[in-house]
């Protein structure tokens, strides 16, 4: 799955940076384990160095009634769907890969920001923070293991 979105993050107030700031395309790739269940919902979002929610990157899954099971994201946003306007896609099947390309601001990197992925699937465990990974220039391209649903996650520039 390939998505390209411009300035997705510029929508959120916490991440409004000076207009001169540079942005670059970043590809987020989450490979799911073969967990043997219905399609998983995934929420990809960022917290700042104080562990405060800073903004959403992507939400895989279409029915808002199930967002409550993405507990970390849901608690941070109160389930506010305006946080994910234009950055949603289909839920991801067991063993499949989610790949999204976004234009992210340079200022997100090496500043203590962390990327979180919450995951959940019907009748299975809720897995907030399945992946938590600091956003650094050096860490780009290095696969990270997830805790329950995600076998490996990589962000590459």
């Amino acid at each position: 799955m390939m998505k390209s979105l411009l300035a997705a993050l510029a929508l959120t107030t916490a991440l409004s940076f000076p207009a001169a700031a540079m942005a670059r395309p970043v590809t987020l790739s989450a490979q799911l384990k073969d967990y043997g269940g219905n399609n998983a919902y995934l929420a990809l979002y960022v917290t700042d160095k104080n562990n405060k929610y800073a903004g959403s990157l992507w939400l895989a899954g279409s029915r808002t009634r199930y967002f409550q099971h993405l507990a970390g994201w849901y608690n941070a946003t109160g389930g506010d769907t305006s946080q994910i306007n234009g950055i949603t896609g289909a839920s991801v099947g067991s063993g499949r890969t989610l790949e999204v390309t976004l234009d992210l601001k340079d200022a997100l990197f090496d500043q203590g920001y962390k990327l979180h992925i919450d995951a959940a699937a019907e009748n299975l465990r809720e897995s907030p923070n399945d992946v938590v990974v600091p956003l650094t220039s050096a860490g780009a391209g290095t696969p990270v293991k997830g805790r329950r649903y995600i076998s490996s996650f990589t962000y590459s520039m």
Partner: peptide, 16 residues
Amino acid sequence: ASAFGLLPDQPAALAI
């Protein structure tokens, strides 16, 4: 109808 969000039965969010 509920699955397609046509009913006002969506769970209300409780703020942390």
